[in-house]
Design a protein around this nucleic acid. Sequence first.
DNA 1: CCACTCCTTCCATCCAGTGGAAGCGAAGGC
DNA 2: GCCTTCGCTTCCACTGGATGGAAGGAGTGG
Lengths: 254, 254
Amino acid sequence: MAGGSRDPGRSVTSRVLAILGAFDTGHPRLTLTDIARRSGLALSTVHRLVAELEDWQALSRTPDGRFHVGLRLWELGQLAANRLQEVAHPWLQELFADTGENVHLAIRDGLEVLYVDKVYGRRAVPILSRTGSRLPMHPTGVGKALLAAEADWFITSYLSRTLERPTPHTITEPGRLARELRRVHARGYATTHEEMTLGSCSAAAPVVVDGRAVAALGIVVSSHRVRELQRLVDPLMAAAAQISHAYKAEIVRD
Amino acid sequence: MAGGSRDPGRSVTSRVLAILGAFDTGHPRLTLTDIARRSGLALSTVHRLVAELEDWQALSRTPDGRFHVGLRLWELGQLAANRLQEVAHPWLQELFADTGENVHLAIRDGLEVLYVDKVYGRRAVPILSRTGSRLPMHPTGVGKALLAAEADWFITSYLSRTLERPTPHTITEPGRLARELRRVHARGYATTHEEMTLGSCSAAAPVVVDGRAVAALGIVVSSHRVRELQRLVDPLMAAAAQISHAYKAEIVRD
DNA sequence: CCACTCCTTCCATCCAGTGGAAGCGAAGGC
DNA sequence: GCCTTCGCTTCCACTGGATGGAAGGAGTGG
C-alpha cells in the first residue's frame, strides 16, 4: 500500500533541477523541508537527492544544518561562456578607477535584468545588486536602457502588466514610462532617481552590437550627489561604446 | 535483446552529475559524443539528459552545436556562500588600485589551489588563472603560501607524490621544496619566479584565521620587473592581515 | 561512391526511484 | 514531567520511467 505512486510526467532530472531551482537570490539557504516545499517533492525524495548532491559538493550544509549552493556548482558556473563579461570587465574596471563609483553590467533575461558583473571598492555606496541577482527592468537604470532598445511590441507587452513599485519614486504609469523610454532611446542613456532604492540614483547606457542592445553598463551613486551624475554620463557612454566595439570584434573572431 | 541493461549502482542523479562533471576548465565546450565519452554514459542517455538540461538552460549550445555551461548554472553558482570572497573583494580592489598589478584570492581544495576571485585591469599582465580554475600548489605563489601553512603530515604527503613541472624553474625536488616552504612559513609570504609560467613571477600571503590559512592573497607581475616585487610585499601582507581581521569578524557575526 | 563522425529516434527490457508511514531527537509551552 | 511541534532520517512495497543497443539521417572528406 505504501509508496510507489509516482508523480507521472516528471523525469528524475527535472526533480534534481527542481531542487536546485528552489535556491534563488532571496532564498540562498534552505532547510530540507524548505526545499521539499519549494520544489513540490516528497521529503524523502528530497532527502535522498540532496544527499547525493551534497556528496558531489553541488550543495553544502551550513553549521546549523541548512543547505546552500556548494563549491562545485560555483566552479561549474564559472565555466559558463560569458565572453561578454570577459571582454567588458577591463572597461568596468577602468570606469571604476576613473570615477570611484559602483559600476555594473547587466543583460536582459526574460522580463528582468540579470547582473553579470560588478566592480566596486571599499568606499562605494553599498547597493543591492549582486552578480547573479535579478531585478525588474523599469525601476533600474540598466533595465530602462535595455528596455528602451527593445522593439515596440516588447515594450507594449512589458507595460501592459502590473508593474512593481519598490519605492514611491518608481515610474509605473504606462504612459509616463513609455515617454521616459522614448527619451532614453533618443538620448542613448537612462537615469533613475531613487526608483529602485531610496538613497541611490543611477545612469546607464546600452551596449549595442549590430543594432541590438546585448547588455547595459550602469553606474550608481548616492542620491545626495545627483548633481555629479551628469558628469559621469560621458565616460559611461564612452565605456559602453568601447565595450560594443571590443565585443563585436570578439564575435567575428569566434 | 536490445536495451534495458542498466549499469547498476549508479543513480540518475549521479548520471546528471557525471555529465556536468565532463565540463572543466580545460574542456569548457563539448560535443554530445565528447560528453558521452568523458562521462562514460551511453550516447542515447546523454542525448536525452542533455536535452533536459538544455531546456533548463543549465547547458547551452554554441552555434556550431557544441555544449557549454549555461546561464542558469552560472546564476546558481553565484549563490554559493562565499562570504570569504565578499569580505575580501574590497581589499583586492584596493590592492589593485594601489599597485596596478593582477591581484587574486585562492583557497586550497584537495591538493590544488582554486582561484576564487581576481582583480585586474586593462594594462595588467595577462595570466592564466581565471576564477574557478585550479592549479597545482607547488608552482604557484598562493599554493606555496597555503601549503606552507599546512601541518607537517600534509606537506610530507604532498611532497611524496610526483610533482608536475610546468616550467624548468619549477621546484620539484622534495628536499629543496620543503626548505622553501619552511622559509615561506617563517617569513609569512611566498614568492615565485617563473615557476608556473615563463615570464611571470609572484608574491603571496596567507589569510590566517584562528591559526589556519583559509585562503591566500597573491599578486603577479611580469618577470622583467622582479625587482618591484619586493616593494609589493608590504602592502600585500597588510591587505592579507586586513582580510583576516574582517573575515574573523564576519564569522562570529554569523 | 564509400568511409567516417556525429546526431537523432525508436523500443523491449527491467530495476532504480518514489512517496507514504513510522520512528527519532530537540526545542518549546504548560 | 508531559505533550506538541517541527525537522530530519530510515524503511519498504510498488511500478512506470530510465536505459543503452541498434538502426536511420545528415554532413564532410577522400
